[in-house]
């Protein structure tokens, strides 16, 4: 016997009905179902309202106000928006963020895709290799920062030791404004494991019959990759691209922990700049305004990506 109300014994059904109608008018079955349905989705709705809609509306309100957390918010009209246009640090932080995004997202996609191909082979102990490649992604950000600060260390770091071994002069990876951002981009590849796992899942979802058919048609390894794997993977690649783009625009931790925005503001990422405005300069209004700038950039870029790359994506069941 199932336990849905319709198939309950009569006395149980009466109990449920009594419970649902206690103190109120009798409800029809569909009304009851509606209430139950909304009750079940209410955690999401509440969360969505509390953690998304209300903060977003507050951010809209703050764009037009000056608020330092201490005094009451003061209406300032379009002041915060006008400030965007004469803020030298906003330009710098946009530049740093865009360079970081446009370098690290494609690089990250390529590296994680190649890694996924690499660990998609059927050899003994492959699970160990998969674990090893994925491990860096679960290392806490702070531990990561300490590790890389050592790798980039000018005097005693691993990278400079390699350079010295090749007879090259040392590079001040994190102290030279020209090198700090490339160093962080390089470092971001360390976390390719997350995307790699998604790619791996995608690769394993490609039916073997497609490869068999291609082989029968005389396709080599390259042709199989080009004509089967990549088209079949295109939804996954697209997914990773969009997620990577959105995530990378919000890069914060490494700039905060490793370089603190420096040297000479070369790694002052947009979110770090928002954070500083909010919690160091006590300027919630302007921080909210810059947040909206970030939102529109990310939304705009995502739209562009959907328009130009979306048509290239092959969906099997369309």
């Amino acid at each position: 016997m199932t336990t849905s109300p319709d198939h309950m014994p009569a006395e149980d059904r009466a109990g449920v009905r009594a419970a649902l109608t206690r103190g109120g008018p009798r409800l029809s079955l569909s009304q009851r179902r509606t209430i139950l349905g909304y009750t079940f989705v209410s955690p999401f709705i509440l969360g969505f309202l509390l953690w998304f809609i209300i903060p977003a509306l507050t951010a809209v309100y703050l764009v037009f106000h000056r608020w330092n957390l201490i005094a009451e918010p003061r209406f300032v009209g379009f002041d915060n928006i006008l400030r965007l246009f004469r803020d030298p640090l906003l330009g710098q932080s946009l530049k740093a963020t865009l360079i970081f995004t446009f370098a690290s997202v494609p690089l990250g996609l390529i590296v994680s895709f190649l890694l996924a191909l690499l660990i998609n082979t059927k050899i003994r102990g492959i699970a160990i290799f998969r674990t090893i490649y994925y491990l860096p992604s679960i290392v806490p950000a702070v531990a990561n920062a300490v590790l890389w600060a050592w790798i980039f260390n000018t005097e005693f770091g691993l990278l400079n030791a390699l350079l010295r071994g090749m007879g090259l002069s040392k590079v001040r990876w994190l102290q030279d404004p020209d090198w700090a951002l490339p160093a962080l981009i390089f470092m971001s590849l360390w976390n390719a494991g997350g995307a790699m796992i998604v790619f791996l899942a995608g690769l394993q979802g490609i039916p073997d019959i497609l490869y068999e058919a291609a082989e029968i048609d005389g396709a080599g390894r390259w042709a199989k990759l080009r004509r089967v794997t990549i088209p079949m993977m295109s939804p996954i690649i697209f997914f990773n691209l969009v997620i990577g783009l959105i995530g990378t625009f919000q890069v914060f931790t490494i700039g905060f922990l490793i370089t603190d925005g420096g040297p000479q503001n070369s790694t002052l990422f947009l979110v770090l700049y928002i954070y500083r405005n909010a919690f160091e300069y006590l300027d919630m209004g302007y921080a909210a305004t810059v947040s909206w700038v970030l939102f529109f950039i990310v939304a705009g870029l995502t739209l562009v990506v959907f328009r130009y790359f979306g048509s290239q994506v092959y969906y099997e069941n369309e």
Binding site: N153, T154, E155, F156, G157, R172, Q175
Partner: peptide, 9 residues
């Protein structure tokens, strides 16, 4: 330079 001390740890 500051780098030197940072480097030395």
């Amino acid at each position: 330079e500051a780098v030197y001390l940072e480097g030395l740890g």
